[in-house]
Design a protein around this nucleic acid. Sequence first.
DNA 1: ATAAGGATGACCT
DNA 2: GGTCATCCTTATA
Length: 251
Amino acid sequence: MEENAQIAWRAGEDAPIPLFEQRALEGWGTLLAGWGFELGHPLPRGFFEASPERVGPRLLGKVLACYTPGGVLAGRIVEVEAYLGPHNDPPDPAAHAHRGPTPRNRVLFGPAGHAYVYAIYGRYSCMNVSCEVEGHAGCVLLRALEPVMGLAQMAVNRGLEAGAAARLLTSGPSRLCQALGLTRPGHNGVDLTDSGSALQIRDDGFAVGEVLVTARIGIHEAVDWPLRFALMGHTCVSGPKSLIGKRVLLG
DNA sequence: ATAAGGATGACCT
DNA sequence: GGTCATCCTTATA
């Protein structure tokens, strides 16, 4: 961008939209064509307007794509967890939305298909996708990706040397955020269904085979609810291999 | 105002 | 298998 380029501002905010995000707003089409890749099209809002336990497994195989100063970074979703909204019976005690809206989790109570990004343990971030219609919370935590585009930049973002193993890049909820540069200040609340957004979830037609269903990882409540979903046998799936689960085919 | 602890990852044995 | 860094969010007073 030139020095005298027009500065874009977002209504109600006191900081200009970052330059890379302004370019994203102009559309990804030519850029993606320039890279010679095909990342399909953004998933529509209706895809996310359902229970997280239905949306979660259907997100497997879709592509998370992020427009960054270091180019487009993208990975295929290979592992997720569902967290249910407080309107469910029984409510999900492991969910951030469990006790109702707070300043942190308010995105979850908004419309579906938006990014809920939060900081954890002082040094990491995790990314979720909001589900259900406006007024009802519920989300899907992205736990692992298979890197698809921008692997060299992901390695830089992760502090690894070029050519690092794929699973070291994006296998883990905070690893994938670090690889793509996802943060709460930068990405919380972004509409993932908008083809102008700097962060999108896209469908490139990838066909999912067998799916592994297990309990969720790293929680202390509802420890045996079967709400973790992963592509069976994929090397980029995080967590212990000892975790018992069942195999299913999506219906 | 203050205290408790977390949907983790890296490194150690 | 275990430890721990590190800070923000939340609950409570």
